[in-house]
Design a binder for these strands. Structure first.
Lengths: 340, 340
DNA sequence: TTTTTTCTGAGGTACGTACCTAAAAATGTT
DNA sequence: AACATTTTTAGGTACGTACCTCAGAAAAAA
């Protein structure tokens, strides 16, 4: 049987109330007594029964995911994953909710974050480009006792807040490796397409991609990144121009989550079956495109896993536990037709 | 607030005791009353608070993983994953334990399984080759009220018990696709190496591999499978012979979990950097070999995820819930140097 | 109708923890 | 030594469910 607070009290030679004060960091306990209790915890291997604790506290967790209000299918997949996670966490009395904010407007997101209170929410997972204002707002959130994780976007290491998502540099490298190996020894040019190159994520992917291709596949040369700004006409135009100006294009790396416009544009201008296309993120479009060979490989991250991971991390932090790191790494998945 | 049993009782117009009888399937409740309670459950959306229930029941779950007593690193990784899962599930009062049994001896494993009782264990995850005896023993386990999942090995669809692991046919196809794309248009022969071809898993991987390579990469021809029986001398011998007899070998597919012997044997006889090697399962050896380019790709399954998944499924079944399918699919991972 | 059987209600205790109060004990101060 | 203050104890109720008992109601059988 697992030792209970009662056993712990007996072992430490104090009362239940004192044990409670120590465990929950309440005041009015002498240093010496605290130490005695902690030693007893070590000695008998006491682990708090969080279920009983949450029951007694009748605590339930409320988490929010702050997502861009723009963005098509991938954003919808995230929302769906949140809903699903919500379902699978319902038995642990934790609820998650997706909020769509104009994340590219630092003012809007800062306003939203600043208005959040511990009464509304226990933690937020934020998917937004970095900016000093946002960073500040996030820091103030933490100070107010709201847990924060950076979600899918942002820098893993630089900040103190937890990050959930893939290493974009490694993801770019992976894409570059696939591209190089799939293309073979023939020389050629590679088109790189992104919605924008403003975001750190895009920059890192591009860096990783370039690094591998330039160092290991010297026969290939990478063209400057094309920015679509998510606009259909512009996408069609710049891709057509690029293909016409470079008849020796043999591959395309589509860096942003919405691959539909670029892939369609390429398909309309060139013989897509002769090219190697690598895209990011699993959506119904990329899946279909992989199936009918318009795309050759997808670099993806498991959104369901990412959402659950963010929730688990926020909960662990809230309970002042360390998250189990090994379970929370989001893997860079390579999807081919066969392992969809 | 989530409705409680009290709310449910009031809504159904019955007492708490009756609600309890219905919820826990105890006898002595009229059909009509049962129906009324169930309708009330639907109506107010009652969900049992499993934490409170487990607390009241002071129930803890004990699960066992039955693994082969042979097998090297991969088996150790599984044991490590079990230990880790044990740790991360400890706060949910469920404990898992790895047992090493001579799974290839149907008699030994049947004996072991048959001796298991509900007093010892609530569920077992079995990683063992199929045989009629074992299938029978598993069926009897279920009847005795012990949950069973087939773990990593065995057939996903045929039986009624849950299966946790990858689709080996798809894994073989994935390996075939990687092999074909990485090798390029040059013709050549591919060596296929397995510890044994007796197991269904190996057969299915080979089938999937052949299917893709033959249909999409006609320039390649696949040699008959070499069986190592896990013996070092034999491995060295047959691989050397094979390489000498077929100087045009350009790739090798190592199907079983232990890649060390075959890779080392190939490395000693041929120029491994000129060949494409695809191996299964992430171990410290395959990782190192991928890093220094002896192996080109690893087809893997996340053992940590698989273990946790098996535990969650056994628990769900024990609580008479449906597992959340989407969370329990084990993905076929493709590992390259960049996304380790 | 009466008797037997089946069903239901009311109430309790328990699980392990949180959190509250009142009072006792230990400590410090003058 | 008397007082003030801090620390600790003892005891309680609560969370939502399980599981037990016993009495009473309803239904079925005699």
């Amino acid at each position: 049987m697992r030792p209970t607070t009662k056993d712990l009290a007996k072992e430490a030679g104090v009362s239940l109330a004192t044990v409670d004060r120590v465990l929950n960091g309440r005041s009015g306990v002498k240093e010496r007594t605290i130490k005695a209790v902690n030693e007893a915890i070590e000695k008998i291997g006491f682990v708090r029964n969080m279920q009983a604790a949450n029951l007694a506290r009748s605590k339930s967790y409320r988490f929010q995911f702050i997502l861009p209000d723009t963005g098509g299918e991938f954003r919808n997949m995230l929302l769906a994953s949140i809903k699903e996670a919500n379902h699978s966490f319902s038995s642990e009395s934790t609820a998650a909710q997706g909020k769509q904010i104009a994340v590219n407007d630092p003012h809007a997101i800062t306003n939203y974050i600043t208005a959040l209170s511990v009464d509304d929410v226990d933690g937020v997972a934020i998917m937004a480009p970095e900016s000093p204002q946002v960073r500040d707002a996030i820091a103030r959130l933490s100070e107010r006792g709201i847990e924060v994780v950076q979600f899918l976007s942002g820098q893993p290491k630089a900040s103190k807040v937890d990050f959930v998502g893939i290493d974009n540099h490694a993801a770019g490298s992976t894409a570059g490796h696939i591209m190089g190996r799939f293309l073979g020894p023939e020389p050629g040019k590679i088109m790189v397409i992104s919605e924008t190159m403003q975001s750190r994520d895009a920059i890192e992917r591009r860096l990783g991609f370039d690094e591998i291709v330039n160092s290991q596949f010297g026969q290939l040369s990478i063209l400057p990144s094309l920015e679509t700004y998510g606009n259909e006409n512009r996408t069609n135009l710049i891709i057509r121009q690029c293909l016409e100006n470079n008849p020796d294009i043999c591959g395309a790396y589509i860096m942003n989550a919405e691959a539909q416009l670029p892939v369609t544009a390429i398909d309309q201008t060139a013989d897509i079956s002769q090219m190697v296309l690598v895209a990011h993120e699993r959506t119904t479009f990329t899946e279909a495109a992989l199936r009918d060979d318009r795309i050759d490989a997808i670099i993806a991250q498991n959104t369901g896993h990412a959402v659950r991971s963010a929730i688990r991390i926020m909960r662990a932090r809230h309970e002042q536990r360390e998250p189990f790191a090994s379970q929370e790494t989001i893997r860079i998945e390579i999807l081919l037709k066969q392992n969809l």
